[in-house]
Simulated assay, not measured.
Amino acid sequence: MSEHETTEAAAPATPLLRVVKGDPTAEELAALVAVVAARNAAVAAAAAAEKPKPRSQWGHPVRQHRGPHRVGPGQWRASSW
């Protein structure tokens, strides 16, 4: 390991939670950490399980192009899609 890698590993990570006001007990902090961790796990699981929705073909740019006009009986009616 180089000196730079050792310095990064020794540097403390930023805290996930910070008490701004009051003096919570150890049990209150443990309950808060458990709730936040459970929510983060649920959000991560939901994001991993979510499948991408199929794209609607209604607004697809290919639909703006019309096909060639065909000549023949009944084609005038068929030309209106």
Rank of each mutant, 00 (worst) to 15 (best):
M1T: 08
S2P: 09
E3K: 06
E3P: 00
E3V: 10
H4Y: 12
E5F: 10
E5N: 07
T7H: 04
T7K: 07
A9T: 08
A9K: 12
A9P: 00
A11H: 07
A11P: 01
P12Y: 05
P12I: 08
P12E: 10
T14N: 13
T14R: 14
P15F: 05
L16V: 14
L16M: 11
R18C: 02
V19F: 02
V19A: 03
P24C: 03
P24Q: 07
T25E: 06
A26Q: 11
L29I: 01
A30D: 12
A30Y: 02
A31C: 01
A31P: 02
A31R: 15
A31D: 15
L32I: 08
L32T: 10
L32R: 08
V33W: 04
V33S: 09
A34C: 06
V35F: 04
V35P: 00
V35R: 09
V36M: 06
A37H: 07
N40C: 14
N40M: 15
A41H: 12
A42P: 06
A42H: 12
A42D: 14
V43T: 08
A47H: 11
A47E: 14
A47R: 15
A48D: 13
A48L: 14
E50R: 15
E50Y: 05
K51Q: 15
K53V: 07
R55G: 00
S56M: 02
Q57V: 01
W58N: 01
G59Q: 01
G59I: 00
H60F: 03
H60E: 09
P61N: 02
V62F: 03
V62M: 06
Q64D: 07
Q64I: 02
Q64P: 00
Q64L: 13
H65M: 09
H65Y: 10
R66E: 10
G67K: 11
P68H: 12
H69K: 15
H69A: 15
H69N: 12
R70T: 10
G72K: 04
G72I: 01
G72T: 02
P73F: 05
P73N: 08
P73A: 07
G74I: 02
G74H: 05
G74S: 02
S79P: 03
S79K: 08
S80R: 06
W81T: 04
W81I: 06
